[in-house]
Design a protein around this nucleic acid. Structure first.
Lengths: 150, 150
DNA sequence: TATTGTTATACTCTATAACTATA
DNA sequence: TATAGTTATAGAGTATAACAATA
C-alpha cells in the first residue's frame, strides 16, 4: 500500500526531483552500454565540441569542482577516449582532445541518448516540449542568480 | 572562458539534470535551516500525511531502498521529530508518528520551501507552471513504465 | 600572488547481499 | 516461505582544505 504524498505533490521541487531521479536511472543504463557515466559523457561531449579545452573550463561549464574532475578525466584517459597534452600556452594546464576512439564511441552514445530523449518526452507536443525546455532554463537561471547573490 | 555545450543543450535529460542540480542546492540551504535534508524533509512530510506509516511504505512511495531508510528514520527519531511505535498488527514493523516538535518544525520548513518554490518558478505564468508540472509527471510515468518492462 | 591540477577527505544519496525476528 | 527492518559495504556525485608547479 502506497502512502499519500499530497503535501509534497504541491511542490515544484518535489516534482522536478522525482522526474529527474527516475530519468537519470534510464540515462545511466544507456551510458553504461558505452562504458560511460553521466559525468564522463558530458565531459567527453564538451571536449569534442571544444578541442583543446582545459579542465578548469570543463568544470566551469558543467559546475563540477576541480578536484572532482581529476577522476573523471583520468577515467576518460584510461579508456583512451581523450588524450591530455601539456598546453603550449600554459605548462600548468592540459589541453584535452578526443581520440578517434572517443569520437566513435561518443557518436554511438549520443545516438542512443537522443533516442532515449525522445522516449522520455513521448506524448509531449513539439510546443509543449519547447515550453518544458524554456521552463527548465528559467529555473536554472533563477536558482543561479539566487545562489550568486551572497 | 566558458566552453560551448551546444551538443548537450539539445538534450532534454541535460536540461533536466542542470535545472534539478542547481535547484536542489537551493532547497538544501532551506532544509538545513531546519536541521533537515531533502530525504528527511520528504519522509517527515509523508509521516505527517499518513500517521502510523511503516518504513516499507515510506520507501515504496519515495523510491528509497529499505536499507537507506534506516539512517533517515534514525535521524528523524534522534531529532525527536517522529517516534517509532511497534505496530500492534505486526510486531516486525514500526508505526511512524510525528511528534509535536515534528509538526511545528515541518510547518515552518514547508512554509520556507513553498516560498522558495515560488521564487524558482518566478517568471512562469500559472498556465506555464501547470504545463511544467504536467510535463514532469509525463516524464516520470514514461521512465517508470520503461524501467518496469524487464 | 593567483591559477592549474592534484591529493586527501568527508558527506549525501543510492544500490546489493545477507542477516534477525516475526508473520 | 515471505516480509519488516537491519547491518555491512560499495559506487556515485559533490564539497572543502591544502599542496606543488607554474604563471
Amino acid at each position: 500500500m502506497k502512502a499519500e504524498d499530497k503535501t509534497l505533490r504541491e511542490l515544484t521541487g518535489y516534482r522536478l526531483q522525482r522526474a529527474n531521479g527516475i530519468a537519470m536511472l534510464r540515462y545511466k543504463e544507456v551510458f553504461a552500454q558505452f562504458g560511460l557515466r553521466r559525468t564522463t559523457f558530458s565531459c567527453l561531449s564538451l571536449i569534442i565540441d571544444n578541442p583543446g579545452l582545459k579542465q578548469s573550463q570543463l568544470g566551469e561549464t558543467l559546475a563540477i569542482d576541480r578536484p572532482n574532475l581529476v577522476y573523471i578525466v583520468d577515467d576518460l584517459t584510461r579508456a583512451e577516449l581523450i588524450r591530455r597534452d601539456v598546453s603550449q600556452q600554459d605548462r600548468r594546464a592540459y589541453a584535452l582532445h578526443p581520440t578517434e576512439k572517443g569520437l566513435v564511441i561518443f557518436g554511438h552514445a549520443l545516438e542512443a541518448v537522443r533516442r532515449l530523449d525522445g522516449t522520455i518526452a513521448d506524448g509531449l507536443s513539439a510546443k509543449d516540449h519547447k515550453a518544458l525546455i524554456a521552463a527548465l532554463d528559467l529555473i536554472e537561471r533563477n536558482c543561479a542568480t539566487q545562489l550568486a547573490k551572497p
